[in-house]
């Protein structure tokens, strides 16, 4: 493959968890920072409680809209099992930022499978840097369980050189006025906890 400066962020989770706002925020921020950006989303049937993936890529010039196996610098996961599902997409020195919430998929609900145990430890045993936190509690602390997405963005922001204030500005520009305060709080909790 060509040596390239493109950075890759995968946002994974369960349909309906709010990954679209997270990718909107990232896209907006990175565009403002002057990067070429591509964001690829999933619509339609798989949104209905299925496993969903959003790809965010940025750099001097981005070609492919998708991230492939072995390419992701970051996997940001709204749910533990979903982080594990996409481990193969991580770069050798990539990092996983994961909400420790567990949402049972249908095979577990029907008893056809069990929710796997010790996933964080298993990922760490592969030598992966895993940053795991209970984002749901922090989101509730900020004022809404729906703010898990912004808690995760707060956590992700720690690993970027972009100043926190620019992230906060992007939140102000991407979120409806009445939810700005709540989401700024969620961002700060994710960044500092």
């Amino acid at each position: 493959m060509e040596e390239k400066m493109t950075k890759n962020i995968m946002i994974v989770g369960v349909g309906g968890q709010g990954s679209l706002l997270a990718s909107k925020l990232l896209g907006h921020l990175l565009l403002t920072e002057g990067y070429d950006v591509k964001v690829s989303e999933v619509h339609g049937m798989s949104q209905r409680g299925g496993s969903v993936v959003t790809y965010v890529r940025f750099g001097d010039k981005v070609y492919s809209p998708v991230i492939d196996k072995g390419e992701a610098d970051f996997i940001v996961s709204f749910e533990k099992l979903e982080a594990a599902r996409y481990v193969e997409y991580l770069k050798a020195d990539g990092r996983i930022v994961v909400n420790t919430q567990e949402i049972d998929p249908m095979p577990v609900i029907t008893g056809a499978a069990q929710y796997p145990e010790n996933l964080i430890e298993k990922m760490e045993q592969l030598g992966i840097a895993v940053d795991a936190m209970d984002c749901l509690s922090l989101a509730e602390q900020a004022g809404s369980a729906k703010a898990v997405n912004i808690v995760l963005m707060g956590r992700l922001s720690k690993y970027f050189d972009i100043p926190a204030e620019k992230w906060r500005q992007a939140i102000r520009e991407c979120v409806p006025q009445k939810f700005v305060e709540l989401n700024l709080k969620a961002f700060d909790l994710g960044r500092t906890e």
């Binding site: 798989s46 299925g50 050798a92 998929p105």
Partner: peptide
């Protein structure tokens, strides 16, 4: 291709519902 890390177990799928 770039190198890939794998978990040594099959994970339950998450089909749409």
């Amino acid at each position: 291709l770039p190198p890939v890390k794998k978990l040594g177990e099959t994970l339950p799928g998450r089909p749409p519902v």
